[in-house]
Amino acid sequence: ENLWTTASTFIVLFLLSLFYSTTVTLFKVK
C-alpha cells in the first residue's frame, strides 16, 4: 500500500502542476 500511496501522491502533484502551468499560460496569452 505504501507504493500505491506514493504513486497516488505523485499523480496528484503532477496534475496540480499541469493545471497550474496551463492557467499561467492562459493568463500570459491574455
Rank of each mutant, 00 (worst) to 15 (best):
E1I: 07
E1K: 07
E1Y: 11
E1G: 07
E1L: 08
E1N: 11
E1M: 07
E1T: 08
E1A: 10
E1C: 07
N2E: 14
N2L: 09
N2T: 14
N2P: 10
N2Q: 09
N2K: 07
N2H: 13
N2G: 12
N2D: 13
N2V: 10
N2M: 11
N2R: 08
L3N: 13
L3Q: 14
L3R: 08
L3I: 13
L3Y: 09
L3C: 11
L3P: 15
L3E: 13
L3V: 13
L3T: 14
W4R: 12
W4L: 10
W4S: 14
W4V: 11
W4H: 15
W4Y: 15
W4G: 13
W4F: 13
W4E: 13
W4Q: 15
W4N: 15
W4I: 08
T5Q: 10
T5F: 15
T5W: 15
T5H: 11
T5Y: 13
T5K: 03
T5C: 15
T5R: 10
T5V: 14
T5L: 15
T5M: 12
T6I: 14
T6V: 15
T6F: 11
T6C: 15
T6P: 06
T6G: 06
T6R: 03
T6E: 06
A7D: 09
A7N: 11
A7M: 12
A7F: 06
A7E: 13
A7T: 13
A7I: 06
A7Y: 07
A7W: 05
A7K: 06
A7R: 06
A7L: 11
S8V: 15
S8P: 06
S8F: 14
S8A: 14
S8C: 15
S8R: 12
S8K: 12
T9G: 07
T9H: 04
T9E: 01
T9A: 12
T9I: 14
T9F: 09
T9C: 14
F10G: 04
F10A: 09
F10R: 03
I11C: 13
I11D: 05
I11N: 05
I11S: 06
I11V: 12
I11M: 11
I11W: 08
I11A: 11
I11R: 01
I11H: 03
V12Q: 03
V12L: 12
V12K: 00
V12C: 13
V12Y: 08
V12W: 09
V12A: 11
L13S: 03
L13V: 03
L13N: 02
L13Q: 01
L13H: 01
L13E: 00
L13K: 05
L13W: 04
L13P: 04
L13D: 00
L13T: 03
F14G: 03
F14T: 07
F14Q: 01
F14N: 04
F14R: 01
F14W: 07
F14S: 04
F14V: 03
F14H: 03
F14L: 02
F14P: 04
L15G: 07
L15S: 08
L15H: 03
L15F: 10
L15K: 01
L15P: 05
L15Q: 06
L15V: 14
L15R: 02
L15C: 10
L15E: 05
L15I: 14
L15Y: 00
L15M: 13
L16R: 01
L16V: 11
L16M: 13
L16E: 01
L16G: 09
L16P: 02
L16K: 00
L16D: 02
L16C: 11
L16A: 11
S17G: 08
S17L: 14
S17K: 05
S17H: 01
S17E: 03
S17R: 04
S17V: 11
S17W: 01
S17F: 03
L18V: 13
L18S: 08
L18T: 09
L18D: 04
L18Y: 00
L18H: 04
L18M: 06
L18N: 01
L18P: 00
F19I: 15
F19S: 14
F19V: 15
F19Y: 05
F19D: 00
F19K: 03
F19P: 01
F19A: 15
Y20E: 00
Y20P: 01
Y20S: 02
Y20K: 03
Y20C: 04
Y20H: 06
Y20N: 01
Y20D: 02
Y20W: 10
Y20Q: 01
Y20F: 07
S21G: 13
S21E: 02
S21V: 08
S21T: 10
S21C: 12
S21A: 14
S21L: 04
S21W: 00
T22Q: 07
T22R: 01
T22W: 05
T22A: 14
T22I: 13
T22H: 04
T22Y: 10
T22E: 04
T22C: 09
T22G: 11
T22S: 10
T22K: 04
T23V: 15
T23C: 12
T23E: 03
T23I: 12
T23R: 02
T23Y: 14
T23A: 14
T23H: 07
T23G: 12
V24N: 01
V24K: 01
V24Q: 00
V24I: 11
V24C: 07
V24A: 05
V24P: 02
V24H: 00
V24Y: 01
V24L: 08
V24E: 03
T25Y: 03
T25H: 02
T25P: 01
T25D: 02
T25Q: 04
T25R: 00
T25M: 10
T25S: 07
L26C: 09
L26V: 12
L26N: 02
L26I: 11
L26A: 09
L26P: 00
L26K: 04
L26R: 02
F27C: 08
F27L: 11
F27Y: 12
F27S: 07
F27R: 06
F27V: 11
F27T: 08
K28M: 08
K28D: 03
K28G: 06
K28R: 09
K28T: 07
K28W: 12
K28E: 00
K28I: 10
K28P: 06
K28L: 12
K28V: 09
K28A: 08
K28N: 06
V29L: 14
V29P: 04
V29D: 03
V29F: 10
V29C: 10
K30W: 11
K30H: 10
K30T: 10
K30G: 11
K30P: 06
K30L: 13
K30Y: 12
K30E: 08
K30Q: 12
K30N: 10
K30R: 14
K30F: 11
